[in-house]
């Protein structure tokens, strides 16, 4: 066994094991942590496939931002654990049957006869001065510059949508209303009362 094979099977084992633990976990926070382990294994596989930039992006963006967002939401919402797994057993056989059929069909289609090393030989190892990020940047800023800008707009829309959905206008907050302050007149606030000698109140408008 070569070292690449050892790494591939190690990462695959941890990926499959942590995915299985994730979907059967009763605690949502535990599930998130095992999904983090699964993403680390996926990043290792991507480095084996010489996609270093995307592997690091996966760890930085997914593990660093998206999974932490999941953890924030789980800790913020008080989820009742006992109700979460009520119908667990009812759908498990159906799910296992569907998954087994899909895996069997995929293995038949994607076997070594169709996608083996004799059909798709392993590409040569990249040289030491090969830079994955340079290749990607050259493509991204020339051929794919329009989709790249669209992705930026999409992220902006996502920010606006997320804020607009969860933002609550604050009640009972003491704040200044400048236009109301400027447009105030003296007679709105001040009432001059002259007190007559016979104690009769006269309104002095």
């Amino acid at each position: 066994m070569t070292s690449a094979q050892i790494l591939f099977y190690t990462f695959s084992f941890f990926l499959v094991a942590s995915s299985l633990i994730m979907i059967f976990a009763k605690n949502a926070a535990k599930a998130v942590l095992f999904l983090v382990l699964a993403f680390f294994s996926v990043a290792g596989l991507w480095i084996l496939l010489e996609a270093e930039f995307l592997a690091i992006t996966l760890i930085l963006v997914y593990v660093g931002a998206v999974m932490v967002l999941f953890l924030f939401v789980i800790k913020m919402l008080n989820i009742d654990k006992s109700t979460l797994r009520a119908k667990f057993a009812g759908y498990l056989p159906l799910g296992l049957i569907v998954a087994a059929i899909i895996v069997a069909e995929m293995t038949m289609v994607l076997g070594h006869e169709q996608f083996g090393l004799n059909i798709y030989p392993a590409p040569e190892k990249a040289s030491a001065d090969y830079s994955n990020i340079t290749i990607l940047a050259l493509q991204l800023y020339t051929d794919y510059v329009y989709p790249f800008e669209l992705a930026a707009v999409l992220l902006l829309i996502a920010i606006i949508a997320a804020i607009a959905l969860v933002h609550r206008p604050e009640q009972n907050r003491k704040k200044q209303d400048i236009s109301e302050q400027v447009s105030v007149r003296a007679k709105d606030r001040l009432r001059i009362v002259s007190i007559a000698k016979n104690n009769k109140e006269v309104n002095n408008d």
Binding site: T2, L48, V103, M106, L110, F115, G116, L117
Partner: peptide, 12 residues
């Protein structure tokens, strides 16, 4: 060596 079908089966 690891072939393309290994990766495809793993991801399936």
């Amino acid at each position: 060596m690891i072939s393309l079908s290994d990766y495809l089966i793993l991801s399936s």
